[in-house]
Design a protein around this nucleic acid. Structure first.
Lengths: 148, 148
DNA sequence: CCTTGACCTAAAGTTAGGTTTAGAAATTAC
DNA sequence: GTAATTTCTAAACCTAACTTTAGGTCAAGG
């Protein structure tokens, strides 16, 4: 009887749309198998994988980034608590970096806005290292990211 | 001779693409006038407006949100330092809220990941109030935002 | 005057992260 | 055994924030 969860069951339990789960499979975030009729079947541990995905997204990580983290889980067996704690560690570090970057930006804002430097390239708010950590998108090719 | 900046000059000084500046005009973030030949001419204070746009984007604000802030600048005259400091205040508040929300999420993560609750709807990481403040997008209709 | 570079508009293309639709096949419920 | 659900795939559509393209006009230099 324990032949895995259907996609609908998984959707009900995670709150995700069925279409979103299929999309996540296409992005390599989960790897269900198929039953004789060709329908997807999921392990119970995929509930946790998807929960992790949803939470990581709230923190502003992209799906490829999340996939990278998930790929560090063991392949052959169901992840244990220790496995999750392990991947949580790197995750937490990257998170701290994001928050610090935002705080630095905020502090610069305090010094900068209202002064004249806002219009100068020299303004601290333009320093590049914090850019990637920030949440917004900004002009796509800002700061030399222009493709050839 | 001081008949305003051309769009190219503005682009060079802000680092924005010309196409981005035209797009911002379409979104109501700047309001250039036209010269006799139909070309856009900008005020020097638009340099600051655009700088503000770029910085606000780094903080994760959308263009409509930024427009809302900019609309609080005086209409008839060039904004003064006091005007900018004024709009900076609300901005700073919203920013603090964003950072706090991220910190709360992080703290929840510490308690949650590695434990069993990650897969339960009761998990603190799912509490709704922080959702809007977070940076990521997540599944579009998560948590009852589904349109009729 | 003529050429070159900057500028114009409108429309289509791009990326991320999904959703919607259409038509068909598998499951489940009665 | 049949009706109602679910699920399947592929392809088209969606939003934000732009970029690119196409075809034409404006402005400045020699």
């Amino acid at each position: 009887m324990n032949d895995g969860l259907s996609i609908g069951a998984l959707a009900r339990r995670t709150g995700l749309a069925v279409s979103a789960i299929r999309y996540y499979e296409a992005q390599g975030l989960i790897r269900p198998w198929r039953n004789p009729g060709g329908q997807r079947r999921f392990q119970r541990s995929d509930l946790r994988r998807l929960s992790f995905v949803m939470i990581a997204q709230q923190f502003g990580f992209t799906l490829p980034e999340i996939r990278q983290e998930l790929d560090r889980l063991p392949g052959g067996r169901t992840p244990t608590k220790a496995d999750w704690a392990n991947i949580s560690a790197t995750f937490r570090t990257r998170l701290d970096q994001k928050i610090e970057a935002l705080e630095r930006l905020r502090d610069n804002l305090d010094g900068c806005i209202g002064c004249g430097c806002l219009s100068l390239p020299a303004c601290a708010l333009y320093n590049r290292e914090d850019k990637a950590a920030a949440a917004g998108q900004g002009p796509r090719y800002l700061m030399g990211d222009r493709p050839e």
